[in-house]
Amino acid sequence: MGWLSVVRNQAVPVPEGVVLERGERALATAVAEGTTVVITSRRLVVPGELDAGKPWHLVDGGAWDPTDSVLRVTWVDGSPAGRWHLTEPGGVPDAFHERVNASVLLVEQVRLDRSRRARVVLRKNLTTDAVLAQTIVARGCDPDDPQLVAVTEEVAARLAEQVGLEP
Rank of each mutant, 00 (worst) to 15 (best):
V121L: 10
V73H: 11
A81Y: 02
V38K: 02
V151E: 14
V76G: 03
A160H: 10
L122S: 05
C141F: 04
Q134G: 07
R116Y: 03
L165Y: 11
G48R: 04
W3P: 04
L126P: 10
R119T: 09
G164Q: 05
L20S: 07
W3H: 12
W84F: 12
T29S: 09
I39W: 01
N125W: 01
N9D: 15
L105F: 02
P93F: 00
D77C: 07
E33D: 14
G164A: 10
G91L: 06
R25H: 11
D94E: 14
N125L: 02
P13M: 01
L106T: 03
L58F: 11
R123A: 06
A81K: 09
A156D: 06
G17I: 00
V18K: 04
V31S: 11
Q147L: 07
G34S: 06
W75R: 06
R99T: 00
T29R: 12
V100L: 03
R99Y: 04
T152W: 04
L44M: 13
T128R: 06
D113S: 09
L165M: 13
L112H: 08
T35D: 07
D68Y: 06
L112E: 07
V151F: 00
G91E: 14
D142I: 06
G78A: 03
G23I: 00
D94C: 05
E153Q: 15
I136R: 07
L159F: 02
L50N: 05
W84I: 00
D113G: 02
G82P: 03
